[in-house]
């Protein structure tokens, strides 16, 4: 990745490589579910066009809340979100979809009673005429979905459902895709598949913001990562930088080995 990226600078709003064009920017976001209790507490991230950005952090750091706030599912109490230079703060999810933001929830991310094809049709609910063209794109990317187009999504395995969920979000041809823990609930082999799929989507030209529990794997495939801690962006850097940064390791990536050593 770009050499200009600075390593792990705490609390900085930036982090975007100089050669990348800004696509989405969250500035000093404060958001939460209950009035007076902020889950996000001054969180800032930047995502460039074509970037694959991973967001990691300990449980309760606000990773999923950040994603939901970007997508208008959680009320933003302070701060701004811009997409392609336009202010989209506080916009409802359904209007963000029309503006090119795709979102894949962590669980329950397909319509179980609908077939694969019907799920894809829901994906282009706002532009039904583009179905054929978009479905072709999806089948190119995930041939399995072409073969299974008339299978009920609820009858598919977890890994397959994850694929359907991503494909549904891609039907609107989004400029940025928000993924909430694509590996959640999957076996290690299926997790790797989900990560590879995410990378494939990114290679097809879609910017991706991915929230992940599985930090190591996530950083391995990401261009850049943000480490969240207590509702703030604590560190940013390329995936490789973060993986080897001692501060990140001590904060999150695992002190288990040290703890075990101490015990002995």
């Amino acid at each position: 990745m770009s050499e200009t990226t600075t390593t792990a600078a705490a609390g900085t709003a930036s982090g975007l490589p100089a050669d990348k064009e800004l696509l989405l920017k969250a500035d000093n976001l404060e958001a939460g579910y209950v009035p007076g209790v902020n889950i996000l507490d001054g969180c800032s991230i930047e995502v460039g066009k074509g970037e694959l950005v991973g967001i990691i952090g300990p449980n309760g750091a606000g990773k999923s809340t950040l994603l939901k706030a970007l997508f208008g599912l959680v009320n933003i109490t302070s701060g701004t979100v811009t997409l392609d230079g336009q202010d989209i703060t506080g916009m409802k999810a359904n209007s963000l979809v029309a503006r090119g933001v795709g979102f894949v929830p962590q669980t329950n991310n397909v319509f179980p009673s609908l077939t694969v094809e019907e799920n894809m049709r829901m994906g282009v609910y706002l532009r039904p005429r583009t179905f054929d063209q978009r479905f072709e794109f999806i089948v190119d990317l995930f041939p399995t979905l072409g073969e299974r187009r008339s299978q009920r999504a609820g009858a598919m395995s977890g890994g397959e459902r994850q694929m359907v969920a991503m494909a549904r979000a891609l039907m609107m041809n989004p400029s940025v895709l928000l993924l909430d823990e694509p590996s959640a609930g999957l076996s290690p082999v299926r997790q790797d598949e989900a990560f590879l799929r995410t990378r494939m989507i990114n290679k097809a030209g879609v910017s991706v913001i991915m929230v992940e529990q599985n930090a190591r794997r996530c950083l391995q495939i990401c261009d850049r990562g943000y480490v969240l801690d207590q509702g703030k962006d604590a560190y940013t850097g390329t995936g490789q930088e973060l993986q080897s940064d001692p501060k990140v390791i001590s904060l999150y990536l695992g002190t288990l080995a040290e703890d075990v050593e101490k015990e002995n």
Binding site: L73, K92, V97, N108, S113, R168, A169, M172
Partner: peptide, 18 residues
């Protein structure tokens, strides 16, 4: 049906659940 089955997912498909 979409909103009933899954509100967030319906929103994510561009449907106004309100």
């Amino acid at each position: 049906r979409a909103v009933v089955q899954n509100r967030d997912l319906a929103e994510a498909s561009g449907i106004s659940s309100r």
